[in-house]
Design a binder for these strands. Sequence first.
RNA 1: GGAGGGAUGGCCGAGCGGACGAAGGCGCUGGUCUCGAAAACCAGUGGGGUCGCAAGAUUCUCGUGGGUUCGAAUCCCACUCCCUCCGCCA
Length: 426
Amino acid sequence: MLDSKLIEENMLEVKRKLDSRGAEVDYDQFRALDLGRKEIIKKVEELERERNVGSKKVGELMREGKKEEAGALQEEMKEISSKIKNLGELRAKAEEEFRDFMLMIPNLPNDLVPVGKNEEDNVEIRKWGEPRDFDFTPKDHVEIGKDLDILDLDRAAKITGARFALYKGLGARLERALINFMLDIHTNDHGYKEVLPPFMANTESFIGTGNLPKFEEDLFKIQDSNFYLIPTAEVPVTNIHRDEILKEEDLPIKYVAYTPCFRSEAGSYGKDVKGIIRQHQFNKVELVKFSTPEKSYEEHESLTQNAERILELLGLPYRVVVLCTGDMGFSSAKTYDIELWVPSENTYREISSCSNFEDFQARRASIRYRPKQGGKTKLVHTLNGSGLAVGRTFLGILENYQQSDGSVTIPEVLVPYMGGVTKISN
RNA sequence: GGAGGGAUGGCCGAGCGGACGAAGGCGCUGGUCUCGAAAACCAGUGGGGUCGCAAGAUUCUCGUGGGUUCGAAUCCCACUCCCUCCGCCA
């Protein structure tokens, strides 16, 4: 959520920035809702003041034994109270409408973000590793997985449906190895605290991160409850500190969490239908940070590097792009995508998205901190990024480490996690 | 599933119709003392909104939402969450 005062005071600048990301906002409506709300607040508060003063007076008169005067005043106050009740309802409605309106406005892109319309305008920042030169025709991960009997998409479809996966044997082991490997690196080397959160969260939590109210169709909802399956650990982990006041001394707070992620993928019919690129359920290790505003961009860089390091240790080629204004997510102020080299597609595909949300989520979720010097509480900055999407890492290993005989060698760092297995073959 | 108990400020904890945004303690900040620190002592110290350049004014906020009342942390109702006991169960 944006600061309504910022919109009020810098409307042209806000409009320019929101336009740059293709957001349509009705500024006249903003003004009307904001002014209407302020006006009614003023009215109600004036009446409340009268009532408070009057009621106190009634008490005094009673104690002094002036019953008649007290009674008369009581009658007066009765009327004021009923007025307050009526106006109060209007006030609640005005404030709710205003908040609902504000919740639908996306974040402002940071000034450093390149302006653009869509993913074609994203800017490559750096590349790591050389895509392998195959001296045979490489297979895609679906074929490799099938031939080695470690990935069974047909049976997964029988169990559940399209866009689900059944990992088998060393395939299941590899998925588990990757999860453990990532968690170990981030906790031991990068200083994150491991958490294992619920895989469902309530409406408030989803509003906090910005997934609701606008993107409900992307989520799986649990019937007869206000719980949704999480589409990313970002939701439960960011909300760990919802409605809290943190100490500046404790910042930055860094969490790493493994969770499965559930996405309805509404609107992506026909997109990436083959293989495990786009699934309704996939595993992910997520990095989340809470930072002071001063340090958040530094933390954004290091978070992205922490994610990149996993790919480097695994020897998987990748590149990093900064998303342009038009391609960023709703809540983000700046996002880096890390893209993995996928031989079968002869291109790079997203494997991690690292964002700085600045105070956008913090304002929605009321996550603040007390400055060391004292003074007013301030909103923290929240950040997160995949470190990494496990299914796509699995895919990367299968495709990049495949051999001409159909086997897949295991990257050295994973061998201990694979119980000493160095190669998956028939 | 059945029976009870509870939810108060950054934390602990009192209050149970009017002078209560709330005792006391802890923590934090400043000061006294000290070469310095600790201890002790003194003082200050919640959060959000509206108005205001500010000082400040005002209002809301004692789990959430309703109700009773001139007036609610305090009484009533519903809901949520936590705890104890019984039953069931991975």
